[in-house]
């Protein structure tokens, strides 16, 4: 039943692919290969001396206890952010998909935070929760809670999780809403006529039909938390207090850019590359099987 376009010209498909391939090679494979090469080098910041030291950077990395800490922090941070932003976005999308007055306004407002740059999002939350000046922090202190993200690692973590989640909800919301709108009304109506409650309709019909979207978002969110959140962390906590919010990507940035340790930083990014490739592979291999298209 599928329609297939037949290309007689053998070269044309490759020609059409070339621009894309060039972009991928120049902007993805080349920097990635540079990172791998760099991770085997011991080099000063100016590149005056450079030694090939095989896996020493990696050995050093895994002997560093703070690297283990960064793994734990990343695991906690990414699971909470992904879970929170996906679930709250789904809830909001389901609500906004209903036939209520002013849905257009709700939708627009819910999408807005996505336009905010990560660093700015961080600063906004910092303004509210900064212990001595923040409005919310002041209120918390009045309630007798000793809110202090400068010294209390859990408070700091909570703050970055909130900022990172808030920022990602819009994106997830947009996709969930589009997914919801593409579900044929007739299926849902048929179930309603059969007497299925709205909760039952959601779990047996809407959610399975939404699973491709949910799966896509899971992949995107994991990548987001791994790579795009360092702007938030940098502006809110700077990885502190005492490394309580230092994620893998923030450590790469910190050691490489601020610390000038290029080899160690490159080794870390190689490890991260492997992790994300692994995670994505697992997601496609196992989670995708459960996804209904």
């Amino acid at each position: 039943m599928e329609k297939r376009a037949i290309y007689n010209n053998k070269l044309l498909p490759y020609l059409l692919l070339t621009p894309q391939m060039i972009v991928v090679l120049v902007f993805f494979y080349w920097p990635a290969s540079q990172a791998i090469y760099q991770s085997f080098l011991l080099e000063d910041a100016f590149g005056l001396r450079s030694d090939f030291i095989w896996f020493e950077n990696f050995v050093e990395l895994f002997q560093d206890p703070s690297y283990g800490n960064a793994f734990v922090v990343t695991a906690i941070f990414s699971t909470t952010v992904a879970a929170l932003s996906l679930s709250s976005a789904l809830l909001l999308a389901v609500m906004a998909d209903r036939q209520i007055k002013g849905t257009g306004i709700y939708k627009t407002l819910l999408i807005w935070p996505y336009a905010v740059a990560p660093a700015i999002a961080g600063v906004l939350w910092l303004f509210m929760f900064q212990p001595s000046l923040g409005v919310v922090a002041q209120a918390l202190r009045k309630l007798g809670i000793d809110w202090n993200p400068l010294l209390n690692g859990n408070h700091a973590m909570l703050l970055v999780v909130m900022a990172a989640t808030w920022k990602q909800i819009s994106y997830n919301f947009l996709f969930f809403l589009a997914g919801l709108q593409s579900i044929p009304r007739s299926v849902i109506e048929a179930a309603a006529i059969d007497g299925a409650s709205s909760t039952r309709r959601f779990w047996t019909i809407i959610f399975p039909l939404l699973s491709p979207t949910a799966f896509f978002l899971l992949v995107v969110n994991v990548v987001y938390v791994f790579f795009d959140t360092f702007g938030i962390i940098d502006s809110v906590t700077g990885g502190g207090p005492a490394k309580a919010t230092e994620t893998l990507v923030y450590k790469v940035f910190f050691d490489g850019r601020l610390g000038g340790n290029l080899g160690g930083s490159a080794a870390q990014s190689v490890v991260m590359m492997v992790i994300v490739i692994g995670l994505t592979a697992v997601q496609f291999r196992y989670v995708e099987r459960k996804v209904h298209y």
Binding site: L150, L151, N152, G153, G239, G240, P241, A242, K243, F254, D255, L258, G259, G260, N261
Partner: peptide, 21 residues
């Protein structure tokens, strides 16, 4: 050497002490 990172490592330890850990 590595003064930027040194300062942060010291600050982390000071934070641990101030937080009572």
């Amino acid at each position: 050497g590595n003064m930027v990172q040194l300062r942060d490592v010291w600050a982390e330890e000071v934070e641990e002490a101030l937080a009572g850990k």
